[in-house]
Amino acid sequence: MAMPALRFDRLGQVFETRSGRTEALRDVSFDVARHEFVSILGPSGCGKSTLLRMIAGLLTPTSGSVEVFGLPVTAPRDDIGIVFQKPTLLPWATVEDNVVFPARHKTGRVTAEERQRAGELLDMVGLSGFEKRLPDELSGGMQQRVGIARALLMDPDILLMDEPFSALDALTREVMGFDLLRIFSERPKTVVFITHSVSEAALLSDRVLVMTGRPGSILTEVNVPVTRPRGPETAKDKAIHELSDHLRDLLLNRHAA
């Protein structure tokens, strides 16, 4: 059995604040295989983002551990990219400069090769021809595409996506989902995808982890029984709809309880 890309072992996070102690996560254990797409679905405030920050090495767990390719995470790593909920681009920089920003920020310079990569990535996310535009000339969906291209610049093996489409309108959101399927079929990545949307989780993932409310822990995990490649046709698949209903029931029952 191959080494998992990510391994969570009885992970816990407690925040000590002036108003008291908040347990954000408790006893979270799961593995993510290399090039697997795992969605994390759960109510607001269940510690999904906290989980992501611990993988990224931005937050140290108070108990348990996160391992990336067999090594405990102690600091941010080069092979992890992050896509945020909001695009958070630099408003003064062109689309191309925003995509190469990680290189400039990390090393102080941008190589010709990185510029070329940026061009390829922009092409892949459907933004060729927009290289010299400024972010506020772009729609929300296009901005988030730039955000995705930026996260892929350093060709990370692992991509963390924190509700990347939650700020978009329903139609754009659906299109972005299909684009993501295409992008990852071209360049396979290990993806941890946080979302509130059951249909999005069902369509995109190999596996969906459903979390409970605070303190967050894994309620159950569900495999998505649909083969790849997937596309717009997959969204109409009966299995996807049944799975969405099942996931929705899990979340709602949990809420009612």
Binding site: F84, R104, K106, G108
Partner: peptide, 21 residues
């Protein structure tokens, strides 16, 4: 935006670059 500061930290960039860039 705190996300950009997190991006900066995730890239392990220097504090000086966080300020200037």
């Amino acid at each position: 935006p705190p996300e950009l500061i997190e991006l900066s930290r995730s890239l392990r960039a220097s504090g000086l670059r966080e300020i200037t860039q």
